[in-house]
Design a protein around this nucleic acid. Structure first.
Lengths: 335, 335
DNA sequence: AAATTGAAAGACAACGTTGTCTGGCAGTAG
DNA sequence: CTACTGCCAGACAACGTTGTCTTTCAATTT
C-alpha cells in the first residue's frame, strides 16, 4: 500500500544486473563496463533510487555518519546563532551535517541530548556546557567533544572560549580612565566559567575598591530591575559593567527609564546587533562568535581525524569597541 | 587498537545470555525473568553499552529515524533563528531531533541538502524555499515537506506563511492616515513570494499612485544606499516602507545619515530586537516566527503520522506595532 | 592450440539490531 | 502417567548496503 523506497535490489532487477554491480556504480567504482553502468544509471533515474545512508554506514569500514552535534544555550540567541552558523559553514565545507539542540542551561537536557546524539553515532559534539555534571560524556567512547563559550567542569576536552578576564579588566580600566571609581557589576550565573572569569577581570582591575555587584542575572527584565535598584540605592555607581548582552539590554532599558543614559556610563560584555544605533551607542567588549565556531569546528575535525594530543584551551581575543556609552565621564557626586 | 563500541553481542557474552535476550531487556519487553534482566542491565552498565540507532532503525518495522530536517535562509538571522527554535521545541516534545542547514538563497544548496537529508532518512523536512526548482522534492517518496515563510513554486505541500498582503496594505494605510501620499518601497528579491505579496499589498493600498520602488535588496548596506538615493532624488517620498528587517535596518541608517529620521516616516515589515529602543522607535508589521515554527512543526508531524489530506496553506497573522517612526506626519513639500 | 593472465561481474557473508519461529520446561488437567 | 497449555529463552533470518572471494570469459602469451 505505502510506496516503499526502492532498494539496490530493485535497481538491480530493473537494470538486469547483480546488486553488487549497482553498488559499484553508485559508489563510483571504475570496474564496471560502460554499457552496464549506463543501464544501472538509467534504472536509478527511473526508480528515483536514493542510497540508504544508514545501511551503508553500518557496513562500511570507516564508521562515519558525517554528522556532528551542536548543543548551545539557545539557538535563537544572537551569540549562539552566530556560533552555530559558523560551525555549520565549516561543516558544510567538509560535507558534514549538523544536529542542533538548545539546552536553556538545563543539565538534564544536556545529558539527554548528548546521549541521544551518541546513540545516533554522531562523529563528534560541540557543546556549550550548562555547568552540570559531565561525567556521562566520558562514556561515549570515541566521540570527541569540543567545548565552546564556557570551560567544562572537570572534564578533559578541547575548549574554545573568549579572553574573559582580560576583556573584562580592559573594560573596567577603560571606565577608570574616564574617571569612574564606583562601577556597578551586573553579571550572569556565577556557576558558569564565563561569569566567574568576567567577574575576576572586574575585581582584578578595580583592586580593593569593588563597586556594588548583582549576580545570576539572565533575562533583560531581571537585569533591568537589578540595574534600577542599584542606581537608586545610596552611593550609586557612576558606571555599569554588564557581562552578557541580555543583561546589557536590560541595563540600557533601566538607564532610559531613569533618564540616566547620558550620565551613567555603560560597557557591556558581548556585542549585539544595533548596539551602534542606540542613543548613546553602546560600548562593548565584543566577542567573536563566528571565529569561536570556526575554531571549535576545526578543533573537532582534527579530533575526528584522529588527533590525540592533550586537551587544548583555545582563547579567542575580545575587542573593546568604544561607541559612546562607555566614554561618558564620571559625574562628581551631587550630594 | 581503537576502542570499539560494545555491541549487544558483547553484552550478551558478559551477561551469559543470548543476544536476543539483551535486545528484549534494552527494549523494555516484559517477557524476561527478573534475574536475567538484572544480569543484562549490569552488563550494559559495566560495558557502557549504547544501542546503535542506525542498525536498530534498519531492522525495525516502523522505519522512523525520529529526525527531521530544517532548512532556512540563515540560522543566524533573527527571524530564521526564532523559527528554528520554535521547531526545535516542538520536536523535543516528541523526542525528535533536528538537522539544520542555512541556504543563503542558493537553490543548488537547497537541492543538495534536501537530497542529503532524504538519504539520511529524515522523517520530514521544513523548508524555506529559495525560489529555485523544487521538482527534486517529488522524488523523495514518503518524506513529507512543509514550507515556511515563502510559498513553494508550483510544488504541492503544506505551507505556513505570514499574511503578507494584508500586513503590507495595513502598514501603507497607516501611513496614508498620517497624511502620507508619496511612500517609497524598498523590497527584497521579487522572485520570492514574500516580496511579491508585500509589494502587492503596497500597491493595493496605494491604488493608482504608487511611490518610488527599489527591489531585490538583501543586506543593510545595499538597502542603505538605495534609501539614500531615493531620498535624494527629485520628488522624494515622505515615508518609507521596507519589506524585511535587514532592509529596515539599512533604511534606519540611511535616515540617520541624512538627519531625516524625525521627518521621514518608516514602517518595516518584520520586527527585530531593539526596534523599540531606537530613536525614533521603529514601527513594524510584526511577524510571529515562533508561531510559524510551531505551526509548521505541527503540520509536519501530522503528515508524518499519516495525514494525507490536500496541501494546506496556513496564514499566520501579522500585527502592526506603532512605535513612533510610522506615526511621523507627512511634512508638506518644501519647494 | 593450450596455457596464462587480467578484468569484470556475481555469490556470499557481514555490519548491529529486531521480527518470527521453535524448543524446553514447568505447571495443570485428564 | 500422559497430554496439554503457557511462558520464557534462544536460533535464525532479515533490514540495505559493502568487503571479500570466486567465477566467467576474453585477450594475450607460449
Amino acid at each position: 500500500m505505502t510506496p516503499q523506497r526502492p532498494t539496490m535490489n530493485d535497481v538491480a532487477r530493473t537494470a538486469g544486473v547483480s546488486l553488487k554491480t549497482v553498488s559499484r556504480v553508485v559508489n563510483g567504482e571504475t570496474t564496471v563496463a560502460p554499457d552496464l553502468a549506463a543501464k544501472v544509471r538509467a534504472a536509478v533515474e527511473s526508480l528515483d533510487y536514493r542510497p540508504h545512508l544508514g545501511a551503508s554506514m553500518l557496513r562500511r569500514n570507516d564508521r562515519r555518519t558525517r554528522t556532528i552535534g551542536v548543543l548551545l544555550d539557545d539557538v535563537s540567541h544572537p551569540f549562539s546563532a552566530a556560533l552555530h552558523r559558523a560551525v555549520e559553514d565549516q561543516a558544510r565545507a567538509r560535507g558534514i551535517h549538523v544536529l542542533t539542540g538548545s539546552l536553556d542551561q538545563d543539565p538534564v537536557r544536556e545529558q539527554a541530548l548528548a546521549t541521544a546524539f551518541a546513540e545516533r553515532q554522531t562523529d563528534g559534539l560541540i557543546l556549550a556546557p550548562t555547568g552540570g555534571d559531565l561525567a556521562h560524556l566520558r562514556a561515549h567512547t570515541g566521540m570527541p567533544v569540543v567545548f565552546v563559550d564556557r570551560l567544562p567542569a572537570g572534564v578533559i576536552g578541547d575548549s574554545v572560549v573568549s579572553t574573559n578576564v582580560s576583556g573584562a579588566a580592559g573594560a573596567i580600566r577603560h571606565l577608570v580612565a574616564q574617571g569612574h571609581r564606583r562601577i556597578g557589576y551586573l553579571g550572569g550565573r556565577r556557576l558558569l566559567s564565563t561569569a566567574e572569569e568576567r567577574h575576576r577581570g572586574y575585581r582584578r582591575a578595580l583592586g580593593s575598591h569593588p563597586g556594588p555587584a548583582v549576580h545570576d542575572l539572565h533575562d533583560p527584565t531581571a537585569a533591568e530591575r537589578a540595574a534600577i535598584a542599584m542606581l537608586r540605592a545610596p552611593d550609586p555607581p557612576t558606571a555599569l559593567f554588564t557581562t552578557q548582552s541580555m543583561v546589557t539590554i536590560g541595563a540600557v532599558r533601566a538607564l532610559r527609564r531613569l533618564g540616566r543614559e547620558r550620565s551613567v556610563a555603560l560597557i557591556g560584555f558581548d556585542d549585539f546587533p544595533l548596539a551602534d544605533l542606540l542613543d548613546p551607542p553602546v560600548t562593548v567588549v565584543a566577542q567573536d562568535p563566528s571565529r569561536m565556531g570556526r575554531t571549535a569546528a576545526a578543533a573537532l575535525f582534527e579530533r575526528i581525524d584522529g588527533y590525540a594530543g592533550p586537551p587544548r584551551e583555545i582563547r579567542i581575543p575580545t575587542t573593546l569597541i568604544p561607541r559612546g556609552s562607555g566614554e561618558l565621564p564620571a559625574i562628581p557626586l551631587a550630594n
